[in-house]
């Protein structure tokens, strides 16, 4: 009996130490969304139970190894105890109850995470190999950076143009896949001003590791200023002609993952010296690259695949590139001698 009390005391001690130790480590990134609160609360509760169960198994295990170790020269066997039905029922039923409590808590917690605000601002997210595009239908603008006003719920409507991607900002906690052929949704209420990183968390091919986008959470006033600036820039771009500097910006956002501008071979052909160069397609056709060829290559990449490169499914329209953008990009390519 004395042994049982010693072990019980040690179990409590070890459980408390493990739990405090884990908490002292700082296990999670900072909380930057309202959804993170219930999630972290549940995780913390689970950590408590995990610490206890860990101690409940490890302490008697280690205790047994010390106290019931065979002494040198000792012979004979241990006590002949075949089992104890009451104990077995106990450690079946009690865990069952705990498990059901956690399942209930988990469902309730999920409900809190999914709580919807009917006034939520909508942002349309498009994932593609390998980048992100955000459209704000309410304001008629689009961006490669995700600007969000603080303390307002945002409803993300997400689509993929090619393979499965996944939307995750660790500070926001929640994660949702983007599936080709359907629209998936996730609601997030940023709760803390700052800069974060959106990461694709579903393996999506060669450049998966780099499929990130900046996330900027700002006050409502700053958000409105940003919207006005984007609207003005879009209007100015529409008014002026093609511009190589804007083309370079687009290149860095949309094209860089596959096309180099220094002559090195990427997933697709390099753009250096592309205009005026001889092109050989997989079907053997040979011609000199001109503007019309480049535009058609961007819009319908499968219609003319360059020999030695795989056919890709870049979808300029789906990621939000307009004809004016394409003209900018061609203008930029012209500067790459």
């Amino acid at each position: 009996m004395r042994r049982i009390f010693v072990v019980a005391f040690l179990v409590v001690l070890v459980a408390v130490l493990v739990f405090l130790g884990l908490n002292a480590l700082g296990l999670l990134p900072e909380q930057a969304a309202a959804q993170a609160e219930p999630i972290d609360w549940l995780l913390n509760l689970e950590l408590m139970v995990i610490s206890f169960l860990f101690a409940l198994i490890i302490v008697p295990l280690v205790y047994s190894l010390v106290a019931f170790r065979r002494k040198p020269g000792e012979t004979g066997d241990g006590e002949h105890v075949e089992g104890n039905t009451r104990l077995e029922i106990g450690w079946t039923v009690i865990p069952l109850i705990i498990v059901l409590i956690f399942a209930y808590l988990g469902a309730e917690n999920l409900g809190r995470v999914r709580r919807a605000d009917p006034q939520a601002m909508q942002v349309q997210v498009t994932g593609y190999q390998w980048g992100w595009q955000f459209k704000y239908p309410q304001y008629g603008i689009r961006s490669q950076e995700l600007y969000l006003p603080v303390n307002e719920q945002v409803l993300f409507k997400m689509e993929s143009t090619d393979v499965i991607h996944s939307f995750w900002v660790p500070e926001f906690r929640v994660k949702q896949d983007l599936v080709p052929g359907r629209v998936t949704e996730v609601r997030i209420t940023p709760s803390r001003v700052g800069r974060y990183t959106l990461m694709c968390s579903e393996l999506c091919g060669t450049q998966h590791a780099y499929m990130n986008a900046p996330v900027v959470v700002v006050s409502r006033a700053e958000f409105d200023a940003w919207v006005a600036e984007r609207q003005a820039a879009a209007a100015a771009a529409a008014a002026s002609g093609p511009d190589a500097a804007r083309g370079e910006e687009k290149y860095l956002m949309y094209c860089k993952a596959c096309h180099s501008i220094d002559g090195s071979k990427g997933v697709g052909p390099t753009w250096r010296g592309l205009l005026g160069e001889q092109v050989v397609l997989t079907d053997g056709t040979t011609f000199i690259a001109d503007e019309a060829y480049i535009l058609r290559s961007i819009k319908e990449p499968a219609s003319q695949v360059v020999a030695g490169y795989p056919p890709m499914a870049f979808n300029a329209e789906a990621v939000g590139l307009t004809d004016a953008d394409l003209a900018d990009i061609v203008e930029f390519i012209k500067t790459l001698k």
Partner: peptide
């Protein structure tokens, strides 16, 4: 979560097997 129940039975039974043995 239900998987935890039969798995728990194994762990508790293992520890109870060690308890009071002559462990080598």
């Amino acid at each position: 979560l239900l998987v935890a129940v039969p798995t728990g039975v194994k762990f508790f039974s293992w520890v109870a097997t060690l308890w009071g043995g002559k462990i080598e």
